[in-house]
């Protein structure tokens, strides 16, 4: 008897990404606080954990991976003055090139993306992202205010919007980052770009970054408005999110001449309108959407899911 064999082909990575936080210093702070903005925590540490998990839920609803994304997170006293302060930072813990099933050779991929592509943890026990935020803000050292731990809505006057900042920084941790040197435009290890760098294009030179010499790339880093994102998924979906911030039909990246070369090239241009999460300057308003960013991650190699509407009004 002949047997009919049906082979169902599924992509290796096909489920909403889950995040695991290794909560370090500051996440067990027992200071009693009042719940606010949808954050039900009654201690500072609990509110911090709830906020970070809410951020993870936003990214996890769009990024797909069968491998849990592990984030080392902590609150530590950082620079804080009455008129200025550090809020926080995040980035991939490592990049790798030459791994099995690598889509584009001679390219550094961030850990979480490699795991998503391969469907297995490339390096068990090692975190994917490091995130560190300024605990000093909650002493009132900046402007007399503290972080606003609400997960929806704008921060009250004088309070610092944290949700938007964490949402933005985790985006960098997922791979929204260039590895080009800020000193000379070179790529690491004799010329291996990050996967992000493979989609950066200069419309004035009419060259992708990967085809440039180091001096050309160094100059290109501050060649606003000519630095654009050359990925198809961003290009094809951008008009659903912005009406301004284009060059030659492609979304501009942030590369103003007034800054250190490469200082902020790992961002969409501030010329974008309406504003995008991954612009360099979010101000202090609530930003609870990831807008065009999932399509950039799709260009990098992540699978993403369709836009979702959260029951509490997040989009």
């Amino acid at each position: 008897m002949k047997k009919l064999v049906i082979i169902l082909l599924f992509p290796i990575y096909c489920q909403a990404a889950t995040f695991q936080f290794n909560f370090g210093a500051g996440f067990n702070d027992a200071t009693v606080v009042t719940p606010e903005g949808g954050n039900s925590g009654t201690t500072l540490g609990a509110q911090r954990q709830i906020l970070f998990q809410a951020v993870a839920n936003v990214w996890g609803a769009r990024i797909q991976s069968n491998v849990t994304i592990v984030v080392d997170a902590s609150f530590t006293a950082l620079t804080c003055n009455p008129n200025s302060a550090v809020l926080g930072s995040a980035g991939p813990t490592s990049f790798h090139s030459g791994f099995p099933s690598q889509p584009i050779a001679n390219t550094f991929y961030p850990r979480s993306l490699i795991d998503a592509i391969r469907g297995v943890n490339n390096n068990p026990g090692v975190s994917d992202i490091t995130a560190q935020f300024n605990s000093a803000i909650d002493t009132g050292c900046f402007n007399g205010g503290t972080y606003y731990y609400g997960i929806n809505g704008d921060a009250p006057p004088g309070r610092v919007q944290l949700f938007s900042t964490v949402l933005h920084e985790i985006g960098h941790g997922l791979g929204f980052i260039s590895l080009a040197s800020l000193n000379d435009g070179s790529f690491p290890n004799g010329g291996i770009p990050a996967i992000y760098d493979r989609f950066v294009f200069d419309t004035e030179d009419n060259l992708p970054w990967t085809a440039m010499t180091n001096p050309q790339r160094f100059a290109s880093m501050i060649n606003d408005p000519n630095l654009i994102w050359n990925g198809n998924n961003v290009t094809n979906n951008a008009s659903s999110f912005i009406t301004q911030g284009f060059n030659s039909g492609k979304v501009r990246l942030f590369a103003p001449a007034s800054l250190q070369p490469g200082s902020s090239v790992s961002h969409f241009s501030s010329a974008a309108f309406p504003d995008l999460l991954m612009e360099p300057s979010l101000g202090n308003i609530a930003f609870n959407q990831v807008d065009l960013s999932p399509f950039l991650f799709q260009d990098l190699g992540y699978l993403i899911s369709s836009d979702v509407i959260f029951a509490n009004g997040f989009e």
């Binding site: 200025s84 550090v86 980052i177």
Partner: peptide, 10 residues
Amino acid sequence: GFRSTTLTRI
């Protein structure tokens, strides 16, 4: 390292 850092000011 290689972390993007958000700062704030008045």
